[in-house]
């Protein structure tokens, strides 16, 4: 399965971005092939509004079935839920450590948004 991580970098050692909608990039990790692809999210950094909604669509289009990020707002959560993507929040510092926590089953699945919109 594919897991999306919000990140500011382009590899597994890059920081996990605590923001979802306005993360610079998404790293999509494929657990079956142990490989990853990076999707640029730059256009949403400067979006006037709707960055979370657009980012959720981007992650869905990337084929992810799960998302690990710092925080997730209500509109993004609604889109992710509609796309059947499970949301996990983590304060891990890097994508690799967040992936490790996910594998160990130490991340709890979110059942609702954990922040208001525009929290950052």
């Amino acid at each position: 399965m594919k897991i999306a991580f919000s990140t500011s970098g382009a590899d597994l050692n890059a920081p996990l971005d605590s923001r979802f909608g306005r993360a610079a990039k998404f790293l999509i990790y494929d657990t079956e092939t142990a490989s990853f692809a990076v999707i640029d999210n730059q256009q949403n950094l400067n979006a006037a509004q709707g960055a979370g909604i657009q980012s959720a669509q981007t992650v869905a289009a990337g084929g992810a079935q799960a998302l690990v990020t710092g925080h997730c707002g209500p509109k993004a959560f609604r889109v992710l839920a509609a796309a059947g993507i499970k949301v996990y929040t983590s304060d891990a510092t890097t994508v690799a450590s967040a992936l490790e926590l996910y594998r160990e089953g130490k991340l709890k699945e979110s059942v609702a948004a954990d922040v208001e919109g525009h929290w950052a």
Partner: peptide
């Protein structure tokens, strides 16, 4: 303005 999202 991203007022519509289409998924599945």
């Amino acid at each position: 303005y991203k007022a519509l999202a289409v998924l599945a």
